[in-house]
């Protein structure tokens, strides 16, 4: 199954539970098999199957709860105040755990766009197809997501300094 391990990793990040992630991946694969005839050869298979996984997640109880609790698009998460980058300290000292913790704290729509861009290395066009939103929305959401991530890392680094 193409992208099996990546889909599982993405599912775990979305849903935060390994057992639920297995069910989500399994369900995604079933849906993909059932709907494979609707997949158009030559179009982006990766974006297609990630979209199935994401839509399945969003319609699950966990997904509905996660999206229902989202703040508005202008999330009031802290932004770094200056170019001083305390996150660089964390990148060296507590890099992985700090980043993982920040990612887990992000609202689901921010987390997924960062995962698709930075982890899966999808182009904006692919992300647009996977999320079913226009490219402009992908770009603005990614920008806000990264600001939020930097804000969380800044807040975490200030906690470390204290």
């Amino acid at each position: 199954m193409p992208y099996f391990a990546q889909l599982y990793n993405f599912a775990c990040w979305l849903i935060g539970d390994r057992v639920a992630a297995e069910d989500l991946v399994q369900e995604t694969m079933l849906k993909a098999l059932r709907g494979f005839s609707s997949y158009q050869q030559g179009t982006n298979f990766r974006a297609w199957i990630y979209r199935i996984l994401r839509n399945t997640f969003l319609t699950s109880q966990t997904g509905l709860k996660a999206t229902a609790s989202l703040d508005s698009e202008d999330d009031a998460l802290p932004e770094p105040a200056t170019l001083e980058t305390p996150e660089s300290i964390l990148l060296v000292r507590h890099e992985q755990s700090a980043i993982r913790s920040a990612l887990e704290s992000l609202p689901i729509d921010f987390r997924e766009v960062i995962l698709l861009s930075d982890v899966e290395e999808m182009s904006y066009q692919e992300i647009s197809q996977a999320l079913g939103v226009p490219m402009g929305t992908v770009m603005s959401r990614l920008s806000r997501a990264r600001k939020a991530m930097r804000g969380l890392l800044t807040a975490a680094s200030e906690g470390v300094k204290r």
């Binding site: 391990a5 390994r18 993982r100 990612l103």
Partner: peptide
């Protein structure tokens, strides 16, 4: 930090 964080 996030790629292959969770392996099946």
């Amino acid at each position: 930090a996030a790629a292959a964080r969770f392996a099946p």
